[in-house]
């Protein structure tokens, strides 16, 4: 995650091109192939909307992961946090709490737990990998206790499904939400001082410390926002499904990091970045959608998806080394 100052010689431009655009080219190829093979099902406006809706949750949670990775840390509790966010949100809804609070309260829970993660990691200087893994277990246990292991679906008011299921002028509300969040966090990361501090810490923590950056505060902020976005993802998932399962968000954890890593291959500097993450999530979403439409067996889908991610990483790495 070092910020590289690339000053490669001009004649190497095609290898650099590949390293920067390899993933994008692969993404375009995937879309082209699916469109050719299944023009009537894949390449339609309806299905495009379908895909944007399907990736919206992954994008939201992956943006959280992007923030934490930009300060060179990991948060492995995001899946469990999303599950918790979902059940808290759904539970509040069944209790007749106003919808706005059903979304806000999980956000605060996520913000708080994320901040605790960040505090422990920076205050005691322990590995985020292990700390958040443990925190994920704690959250998972809490979620189980909270739900008694059951799926929450009875008596959920129709209003609760507004965020997850409404379509405005042909565009799913979830897709609109995704665009807003991407823009907000893009602005946060690239146009505001805080975002640049994140990258400085991620690039060279010691240098940042020496130059007086309050690392503890920024890292804790990154974890807190990450927790908040994970909980928000859970709430959106509950709204989308009209129900909340005690492990419903767990599946997002690995995909979120896959999206961030794919996103890192999109930019020359190889740092986690918001648009890259959006792109990475889109590639994953398009693969899942297209392969299902083409009736490719599930096991082969997993193999193909995994290999494409590995290929993207290798190409970028090679390109950078040679460049």
């Amino acid at each position: 995650m070092m910020i590289q100052t690339e000053k490669g010689p001009k004649k190497r431009w095609n290898i650099n091109m590949l390293s920067s655009y390899g993933t994008i080219i692969a993404g375009i190829l995937i879309v082209l192939i699916f469109s050719l093979l299944s023009p009537s099902s894949f390449a339609t406006v309806d299905n495009f909307m379908n895909i944007t809706r399907q990736i919206s949750l992954l994008v939201v949670i992956a943006i959280g992961a992007t923030l934490v990775m930009s300060v060179n840390e990991f948060d492995l509790s995001i899946g469990a946090m999303a599950s918790l966010g979902g059940v808290v949100s759904a539970k509040l809804a069944t209790e007749g709490v106003p919808i706005i609070l059903c979304v806000l309260i999980p956000l605060l829970v996520g913000l708080f737990v994320g901040a605790v993660n960040g505090y422990i990691i920076t205050r005691f200087n322990v590995l985020s990998f292990v700390t958040t893994l443990a925190m994920g277990t704690v959250i998972g246990g809490f979620t189980f206790w909270f739900t008694e292991g059951a799926t929450i679906f009875e008596n959920i008011p129709e209003g609760f499904k507004w965020l997850g299921q409404t379509v405005v002028a042909g565009i799913p509300m979830l897709s609109i939400m995704m665009v807003i969040i991407v823009l907000v966090f893009w602005f946060f990361m690239s146009q505001m001082g805080i975002g640049r501090r994140f990258y400085a810490i991620g690039g060279n923590e010691r240098a940042s410390r020496v130059s007086g950056v309050p690392i503890q505060r920024y890292k804790t902020l990154a974890f807190a926002l990450c927790g908040m976005l994970a909980a928000f993802t859970g709430a959106l998932l509950a709204s989308r499904l009209g129900s909340a399962h005690p492990t419903g968000g767990d599946g997002y954890f690995l995909n979120a990091y896959a999206a961030v890593f794919l996103g890192m291959t999109v930019v020359r500097t190889g740092v986690p970045n918001i648009f890259g993450t959006l792109f990475g999530a889109a590639v994953l979403g398009i693969l899942a959608n297209g392969l299902t439409i083409l009736q490719i067996p599930t096991f082969l889908q997993n193999v193909i998806t995994g290999l494409i991610i590995i290929a993207a990483l290798i190409i970028q790495k090679l390109g950078r080394e040679k460049g």
Binding site: S41, R240, L241, G251, A288, I293, T298
Partner: peptide, 23 residues
């Protein structure tokens, strides 16, 4: 056509939308 989402119900919802798209 068999679709398995490895324990993930959110993904099952997405895959259902996909097969609905594929008519």
């Amino acid at each position: 056509n068999i679709v398995d989402t490895n324990g993930d119900v959110g993904a099952l919802a997405s895959r259902m939308e996909d097969v609905i798209s594929s008519k």
